[in-house]
Design a protein around this nucleic acid. Structure first.
Lengths: 253, 253
DNA sequence: CGAGGGATTGAGATTCATCAATCTATGTGG
DNA sequence: CCACATAGATTGATGAATCTCAATCCCTCG
């Protein structure tokens, strides 16, 4: 069962005009090369919220760069539970793995309406061969993902429920701030349900609810109407053992 | 405080004679090229057990390929706890990250006597540029590591204590079997203490002890005298939600 | 107006951590 | 060779953190 891919009807964004290019795979590519790198991009696709994009073990023709919206990559369990491995945000790549012809190692779903830029997986080796800048950029993005995964692993293994939720929210808050560059805003759109937070942190939605209340009572953050308000970013990071420096998508040489 | 690196005195293994090359970075490199790829290798180093190799946030001149022995990469917490991120075994790479000049994102320690092949991190870009086979091989190894990390994340987030320990032991059992190619042996050398298992699975050593006893009583596996005996591999994998196919270090095209 | 998805709260059960003690094997110094 | 120290494994008792089950509430949507 393949997801239906609906191309963006009009005004597909050209790579050279892309507002989030600094975050994405083509960061660092020279302006004059962007027209031919764009040839590797098949299409921009529009996705409604809660649309399945990949299912684990199935094959897919495409990998995607997120242009707009929130996605979750996750592993589903036999008992109906799931573990969210990562929230993918604009600039992030989903569906890349070294074995480009093999089945997907995780499932993916859109959490909001989203726009994805599709790349045929089969043509990636050629793209990387022809443009070392892009290959290097991919390595950067993978390396940051590995780091996020290591930090989440540490959180799940060693921290309490409230620390896990604090870490999760702090990470997303700072990742969104980097994307939107709104320096002084303490609020972000936050499409995750409490159950989603539970699937990230390994907690039940009931316990997430109690912990979120506690965080509100501690005046660290609050969530309402799909908006996350961070009241004390420093204390929230401390509680969640979260270091904002770990989420940058650029390597500082 | 740099770790003292002790070169292997005599009989350094040449890359062309390396018995684990099929597992490691130079898998796939043509025989006639191995003499110059070896030029990138500084030295083989001998490590005693429980020697610190990296400390998080510090810089390091080298990345390493494990030639012999078991290592742990981990994050240490302020409160003295630690989360082991991965057990590194022969063929595995430690210390690679896209930002080759930056500080290490994790600590590393040898769990047994070990022999490591050192590569100057600064020269890696040149090596990868000159030999796309090696760059591709690195992507393969990173991709498998990402998979292992995702699977462990799922285990930590969603499974019970006994399932976590079963997963951990099954993973190591099958990884060692691939390395040693002893097809019919149900025992492996297993240098982890019960406390180490706790640092991998996020459990206390006391609870690990009770769970290991339970696994013995269920006739799935037993540990004694630093040997792991797997009595029923299928059931152990089922219990731990572990798929042996996920640990291969080669991509099957 | 009813239906449904999320959020919220309460009560009780379970899992796992903590604290404390014992046991074994191994190694060390005298 | 013995006395002692140490690390890891083992067991028991207790308590805290978190899950499970159940109910209610609040929105929004049709």
């Amino acid at each position: 069962m393949k997801p239906k891919l609906i191309p963006v009807e009009q005004n597909q964004t050209a790579c050279k005009d892309c507002s989030i290019r600094r975050l994405a795979l083509f960061n660092g590519v020279a302006e004059e090369e962007l027209s031919w790198t764009q040839n590797y991009r098949s299409c921009q696709y529009q996705m409604p919220a809660r649309r399945e994009i990949y299912r684990e073990t199935e094959n897919s023709e495409f990998m995607f760069t997120i242009y707009h919206g929130w996605l979750a990559i996750y592993k589903a369990l036999e008992n109906g539970k799931r573990q969210i491995l990562k929230i993918a945000l604009p600039g992030d790549i989903i569906g890349y793995q070294a074995n480009l012809t093999g089945p997907m190692s995780y499932s993916a779903v859109s959490l909001t309406d989203a726009v994805l830029c599709a790349f045929p997986r089969a043509e990636m080796p050629e793209l990387f061969r022809n443009n070392p800048t892009i290959a290097k950029r991919l390595a950067e993005l993978n390396s940051r993902d590995m780091n996020l995964c290591h930090n989440r692993l540490t959180t799940l293994g060693q921290h309490s429920a409230i620390e896990k939720v604090a870490h999760c929210c702090a990470e997303l808050f700072f990742r969104i701030k980097i994307i939107h560059e709104e320096l002084e805003n303490d609020q972000i759109e936050f499409p995750l349900s409490q159950e989603d937070i539970g699937d990230i942190t390994g907690l039940t939605k009931i316990h997430v609810n109690r912990v979120v209340r506690k965080l509100r009572e501690m005046n660290l953050m609050s969530i309402s109407d799909r908006v996350l308000t961070v009241l004390d970013a420093d204390k929230l990071c401390d509680l969640g053992y979260f270091d904002p420096r770990t989420v940058h998508t650029h390597i500082l040489y």
